[in-house]
Design a protein around this nucleic acid. Structure first.
Length: 523
RNA sequence: GGGCCUGUAGCUCAAUGGUCAGAGCAGGGGACUCAUAAUCCCUUGGUUGGGGGUUCGAAUCCCUCCAGGCCUACCA
């Protein structure tokens, strides 16, 4: 058993600038990692970039750069975005890293020696322009390869193959016996059906004559390895698998198996659901060492799939600039159910931010602190109370919100978890209306009740801040600062009564300024 | 072609086969003044895509049709 919770994300291909989908996956994983820290569990968050392959090589040539230069330029954009969005990872998996190359080559060598790889000639139609073999799927209605492929020649080429189909029956049994291999459940069904139809082995090499930008096969220098074989291994190479002592990489045993590989639905089949478990199995990993796949959905725009080529890609850096990191992170976590698709809408981003963060939470903090200062110089009294409405909050709404939040987060349902936090804030606003502190303040006989109400508000807000902190680390810090709480948020502290008798609250400053008018039409 | 998902209020979504299908937002009406023109209360709004079937009971299970989407095919 690993002693550290290990999350990975897909590594992004350094061929184009990051879009909202990249940002979503990384923020989601960042939130899951931050939740582990909130629970005081050790966590290791690995993300990175996939820098090899034909597309990078081609794009680099177009720009007159070396593949490495091009990949590094693109990598810098991803790194800058993660910094902007507060995505704080522990390990950075860049596949051009020498230690990664070393591990990939060691695994290839082991598989070769175990006779899991073999060399075979393939004869087929090859597009010179696109530099790839064509299959029947590329044929047009007339059964021919269209002009978009340029010159097509019949070519025979030798390559190395991985004995994928030899492990098909094992994979089927594994899927059948491991209910939680794929989350959500319907994806597991989808995967199982795909595996049933699996036939043939996986070509894992490209001759250097047509692709040089990759990791060389250790047993045949005329070839580099296929992109997926290179990329998937990042999950173990950067976790320290087969690493030499003193490499600086983590201790593999402390991390593996990963709690979850967070990936998009597009790379479940075949890469992560077929190639990856079979690779691990072939290398000698036991069934208990195959990690769970947490498969998230897509942000669509106007219901259409996001695509750079359609010109509708949403630049997350622009959104962060326009609305702020908190608004963007909140929207990405609140407006999609993990595993499903959602429609991206700036209008909904503004709406949810204004309604839930500005009007509900932000204004609650502001009005509560304001009253505490106006009526009590900011000093809280922690006194026993018998008022039913206050007990309903301290013994009902608040602990129930924490429990619902925890349950949802453990099931990766971040949107549901956020609902629980917002619901608690809403209950506080209701308490303010029903107790009307401004009236209590005018009646000396109600002094104790006023103190109790103010305490209940501050205490509830403290809990809300703790619950929001994985999604909104900065804003949670801001809330706690205004409450004059200096300790870092912990879920263990999300229990009633944390604020001491005589606690002095900080000065109210509007925290989530409303996004007033929609900015002038984008672009 | 094969596989999978979705279809519930104007919008975004809930609802282990079991009270009258619920929230938030939007719409309508009202209240309040501590607050970021915020908040709170009440309220309008549904043939659960259509049609069959199983059941004492169906949004939920089965069949079928319709509509949209995804994977199958190197964009999270």
């Amino acid at each position: 058993m690993p002693d550290c919770t290990f999350f990975t994300t897909a590594i992004d291909y350094t061929n184009a600038a990051p879009h909202i989908g990249h940002a979503y996956e990384k923020v989601l994983t960042d939130v899951l990692a931050r939740f582990e820290r909130l629970c005081q569990r050790p966590v290791y968050f690995l993300t990175g970039v996939d820098q090899h392959g034909q597309k990078v090589q081609q794009s680099a040539e177009k720009e007159g750069l070396s593949p490495l230069e091009f990949a590094q330029q693109c990598t810098a954009k991803f790194l800058a975005l993660w910094k902007t969005l507060g995505v704080e990872f522990d390990g950075w998996a860049a596949t051009t890293h020498p230690l990664h190359k070393q591990t990939v080559q060691r695994i290839l060598q082991n598989l070769f020696e175990a006779e899991q790889l073999y060399k075979q000639a393939h004869c087929g139609f090859y597009s010179v322009r696109q530099e790839q073999f064509l299959t029947d799927k590329e044929r047009n209605e007339a059964g021919e390869f269209g002009p978009e492929w340029g010159q097509v020649v019949e070519l025979e080429e030798e390559n190395y193959y991985f004995r994928l189909s030899a492990h098909k029956e094992w994979l089927l049994r594994f899927i059948d016996t491991h209910e939680h291999f794929v989350i959500p459940a319907f994806r597991r069904l989808e995967l199982r059906n795909a595996v049933e139809r699996l036939s043939g082995d996986l070509c894992i090499s490209r001759p250097k004559t047509r692709l040089s930008w990759g990791i060389e096969l250790p047993f045949d220098p005329d070839f580099v390895t296929y992109v997926w074989f290179d990329a998937l291994i990042n999950y173990i190479s950067f976790a320290g698998y087969l690493a030499d002592p003193g490499s600086g990489l983590p201790n593999f045993k402390s991390l593996w198996p990963a709690k979850a590989h967070v990936i998009g639905k597009d790379i479940l089949i075949p890469a992560h659901g077929v190639y990856w478990p079979i690779m691990l199995h072939a290398v000698g990993f036991s069934d208990e060492e195959i990690p769970t796949l947490l498969v998230h959905g897509w942000w669509n725009i106007s219901g259409a799939k996001m695509s750079k080529s359609l010109g509708n890609a949403v630049d997350p850096a622009v959104l962060a600039e326009r609305y702020g990191v908190s608004a963007l992170r909140y929207y990405l976590m609140a407006d999609i159910a993990t595993g499903r698709d959602a429609d991206f809408s700036e209008e909904r981003l503004r709406m949810r931010y204004n309604d839930e963060l500005a009007n509900n939470v932000g204004n609650l903090l502001n009005r509560s602190l304001n009253m505490a200062h106006r009526y009590r110089q900011g000093i809280l009294r922690k006194l026993p109370t018998t008022d039913a409405d206050l007990l309903a909050l301290s013994e009902g709404e608040a602990p129930e919100a924490v429990a619902a939040y925890k349950l949802a987060m453990e099931q990766y349902q971040v949107d549901t978890a956020l609902d629980a936090a917002i619901h608690l804030a809403r209950a506080c606003n209701q308490l303010i209306e029903s107790s009307a502190p401004w009236k209590l303040a005018k009646d000396p006989e109600q002094a104790e009740r006023l103190d109790a109400v103010l305490y209940h508000l501050a205490e509830s807000i403290r809990l809300v801040a703790i619950l929001l902190s994985p999604v909104l680390p900065e804003a949670a810090h801001g809330i706690l600062a205004q409450l004059n709480v200096s300790v870092a948020p912990l879920l263990a502290d999300a229990v009633w009564g944390g604020l001491a008798d005589g606690h002095l609250l900080g000065t109210p400053v509007p925290l989530f300024p409303r996004l007033e008018a929609p900015p002038a039409a984008a672009d």
